[in-house]
Design a protein around this nucleic acid. Structure first.
Length: 502
DNA sequence: TCTGGGGTCCTAGGACCC
DNA sequence: TCTGGGGTCCTAGGACCC
């Protein structure tokens, strides 16, 4: 806490959906839902128009479609959102050296460290100027919260939504929080909320009245003590610019539960390879391999194995994941598989050298029979894995393999690649008609609306054969003339946190 | 058409060591 | 051979966030 409201929290409004509306004029003012379009998809972001129908983040798509059947349903385009996020983060970087991104659409900024504001009036001016710059640069609106602590700044930005600014004067924290639900405090979710409610605690005032000892008794040492402090409005957490990643993971939910053990194993191998690609891409190696399995009944389990040294070797990670799979009973079916690596180290020659040594030792000590068996298995499966084209970003099995029968088969049919190529919302270019985006596809046809971010009226719609030679996928166009697009792929990487906008 | 994907942090028990 | 007490590492699960 500080004497002036110089901690700023920025939250872009309905980020993914707003970005789609900005890039597709025909969707402006209309309900838009961005998320997984497969049978098991969920909503990532709903536009404010869609929220009026009751659609919200994390809701199953089927439910969203029942509530808002006439909304536009689009698959997320992360590269595009990342590019816009990079522009926004760049603007934040001009305010202060201390910027802490929480996700693509959210960040804390320490204005005091930037020397641009040291009182309420100054902070408010900086906040309003920032909002104007974001609008001018990206065409999107963001909401700003200003307060003397992270917690209050975040609550303020929530209060400011959409397209607003709220400033809480230091000293008013307790009175402001007292009548609110405990759920307003970041970190209090459904489970903790229920737990507290059963103890008769529903408001922040109740938390204060209960006292620290009681909260520690109910919620445990760490959670109880920090919750008590938060309830009093005490929050000294600093804005931290650099946070090292602690783990890298990938996972897939399947349209249909997997039963076949060979298919399950094949998917684990593909996930391991994808995971290592990401691991290497982030410049890390890691020591602990984690396999995640969600069963038909949604029960989830993890199995992990810690190596003697950090690795970024695809084979090592894959074989560890395979060993872990052997420990899991998959009878009844599997709806999700995931592979992760934690215990990250910076990728350096030293690490690799140490790892090679550790592996040599391990191999020398291993039983010959087990080694031979593992190797024979991976040979075959590696060949099968290599035949499968990697899905483009944002298009998981749910989008790409809709309705695929569960069997030992190699995905990647022509129909399937058409589904991926012409995913709803993706940009295309027609040799004669110019820039547009996919409204929908199926039965060998793809429907395109021809319009650009700058268009003032909705564009015309035309339908083509999916293999029309004049039509091809293209990169997003800038939302604002002269702005960046998703094509660069060089936007600053948002490190920790999720990828979804609320 | 019931429940995504990528993260973080915390707890708790057992192994192991001193 | 009658029992202590820490510290650290590993594993598994759960809550939470966007």
């Amino acid at each position: 806490m500080r004497a002036a409201p110089t901690i700023l929290h920025l939250d872009m409004d309905a980020f993914f959906a707003a970005a789609e509306q900005a890039s597709k004029p025909s969707l402006r003012g209309k309900p838009v839902v961005v998320g997984g379009l497969g049978p098991r998809g969920v909503v990532a972001t709903a536009s404010y128009e869609a929220r009026r129908f009751g659609v919200h983040s994390a809701m199953p798509m089927g439910q969203a479609r029942r509530l808002a059947p006439n909304a536009a349903y689009l698959v997320p385009r992360f590269a595009f959102y990342r590019a816009i996020s990079g522009q926004v983060m760049e603007l934040l970087g001009r305010l202060s050296p201390l910027v802490e991104p929480l996700s693509l659409d959210e960040a804390f900024v320490d204005l005091e460290a930037g020397g641009l504001a040291d009182d309420s009036a100054g902070a408010r001016a900086v906040g309003e100027r920032l909002r104007a710059e974001i609008l001018a640069t990206t065409g999107l609106t963001g909401s700003v919260g200003l307060a003397g602590s992270k917690m209050l700044a975040k609550i303020a930005s929530e209060e400011a939504k959409p397209d607003g600014l709220v400033l809480y004067e230091p000293g008013t924290e307790r009175a402001l929080l007292a009548p609110r639900s405990v759920r307003i405090i970041p970190g209090v979710g459904p489970a903790t909320g229920d737990h507290l409610r059963r103890a008769g605690i529903t408001t922040v005032a109740d938390l204060v009245e209960a006292g620290e000892d009681e909260l520690v008794r109910i919620l445990g040492r760490s959670h109880g003590a920090s919750l008590y402090r938060m309830a009093l409005g005490h929050d000294d957490r600093p804005v931290v610019a650099e946070r090292d990643a602690k783990s890298v993971s990938v996972e897939d939910t399947f349209d249909v539960d997997l039963h076949d053990r060979l298919r399950i194993r094949l998917e684990v191998e593909r996930l391991a390879e994808r995971c290592v690609r990401r691991l290497r891409g982030s410049g890390h190696s890691g020591r602990t391999i984690v396999l995640k399995v969600r069963r038909y009944d949604f029960s989830t389990l993890t199995r992990s194995e810690t190596l003697r040294g950090p690795t970024d070797d695809p084979l090592v990670v894959r074989e560890a994941a395979e060993r872990l799979l052997e420990l899991v009973d998959t009878t009844g079916g599997v709806r999700l598989l995931g592979v992760g690596v934690s215990g990250l180290a910076d990728y350096t020659q030293e690490d690799l050298f140490a790892q090679a040594e550790a592996e040599a030792e391990a191999e020398a000590g291993a039983e010959a029979g087990a080694e031979a068996g593992a190797e024979a298995g991976t040979e075959t499966d590696a060949a099968a894995g290599a035949a499968v084209p990697a899905a483009p970003e944002g298009v998981g099995p749910s989008a790409g393999r809709a309705g695929a029968a569960e069997a030992v088969e190699v995905p990647g049919t022509a129909a399937e690649s058409a589904v991926r190529r012409w995913a709803p919302g993706h940009d295309v270019r027609h040799a004669v008609l110019g820039a547009g985006w996919v409204q929908g596809s199926g039965l060998g046809r793809v429907t395109v609306r021809f319009e650009e971010p700058g268009s003032t009226a909705p564009g015309r719609v035309r339908t083509f054969a999916v293999d029309d030679p004049e039509l091809e996928p293209s990169d997003p166009l800038p939302l604002v003339p002269g702005g960046v697009t998703g094509a660069e792929g060089s936007a600053p990487v948002v490190r920790a946190g999720g990828q979804h906008a609320g």
